[in-house]
């Protein structure tokens, strides 16, 4: 498999605080990689840096052989799914999904007919056909999540980046969506990086997991490698915890109902 994203010695500071320190990471083409860590570990910042929404103070991001510094945001072709989806609230589902294609310069823009058929393919892919005229406010959380995903896929991204994709959903839907996302990934084969603080999610979904702590990468490996051979005490401790302080309430509440 070819290298899709190569991150080399990334440094990032907010004011005086160092939030990413000498981060290097390689994402293989078609891989599904999780960035796992407690809150404040720098995982979202790393994701945004790959996307070009933040700019690193040092180091480089490569897409294949191309240094991302030479690329505009548009040329990066990143499909980014925000934690709170960031759907365009005044647009229908259809217009949301078509946005990336319609925003292209005239010379590269597909015909309106092609855009529409592409949108309907995507709606089918995320199983939302029939909802194209709805507004985001009329959708459930899970449906919004899938619209956001379809919108990101609409630009035929080289990499799909998901920021806490299930963070705002309740436990039951999280499980269903997780399963569905895994299948979708297998079907489309997009190189995908997602951020999560939930190790169960990371290990169940990802081909490989990168564990971050305090702006550094502690360990990268397949779920099995990490489970069997944690490289340091932080990773061991982190795996030992079942519910970290960052676990959302939505996840705890349904558990309480179970008889102990």
């Amino acid at each position: 498999m070819s290298v899709a994203v190569h991150i080399r010695n990334i440094e990032k500071r907010f004011r005086e605080q160092s939030v990413l320190h000498n981060i290097s990471l390689t994402v293989e083409g078609g891989e599904l990689l999780a960035l796992l860590g407690p809150s404040g570990s720098g995982k979202t910042t790393l994701l945004r840096t790959i996307a070009g929404l933040e700019f690193q103070d040092g180091g480089d991001v490569f897409f294949g052989d191309i240094n991302a510094r030479q690329l505009t945001l548009r040329e990066r072709r990143i499909g980014f799914v925000f934690q709170h989806y960031a759907l365009f609230r005044h647009m229908t589902v259809e217009d949301n999904i078509a946005f990336g294609l319609r925003a292209r310069p005239r010379s590269q823009r597909p015909s309106e007919h092609d855009i529409r058929s592409r949108v309907f393919e995507l709606l089918q892919l995320v199983q939302l056909d029939g909802l194209e005229k709805r507004y985001p406010a009329q959708l459930s959380g899970g449906q919004r999540q899938r619209v956001a995903l379809a919108r990101a896929l609409g630009i035929e991204p080289r990499v799909l980046l998901l920021d806490e994709p299930f963070g705002a959903l309740d436990a039951k839907i999280r499980k269903d969506l997780r399963q569905w996302l895994r299948e979708l990934h297998q079907r489309t084969g997009h190189t995908t990086v997602f951020v999560t603080h939930d190790q169960e999610e990371a290990f169940e979904l990802a081909d490989r997991v990168a564990i971050l702590n305090g702006g550094r990468i502690e360990q990268v490996g397949t779920p099995t490698q990490i489970r069997q051979r944690p490289e340091n005490t932080f990773v061991a401790d982190f795996l030992g915890q079942t519910a970290t302080e960052a676990t959302p309430i939505a996840q705890i509440l349904p558990m309480k109902r179970k008889p102990q």
Partner: peptide, 25 residues
């Protein structure tokens, strides 16, 4: 700023983002 960021990441120019995302909102 999330909607603007989403728009930019989808490849829209600054002006396109302003007209189609910020202004309608």
């Amino acid at each position: 700023t999330e909607e603007e960021e989403a728009s930019l990441s989808l490849g829209a120019s600054g002006l396109h983002t302003f007209w189609h995302v910020t202004l309608p909102n």
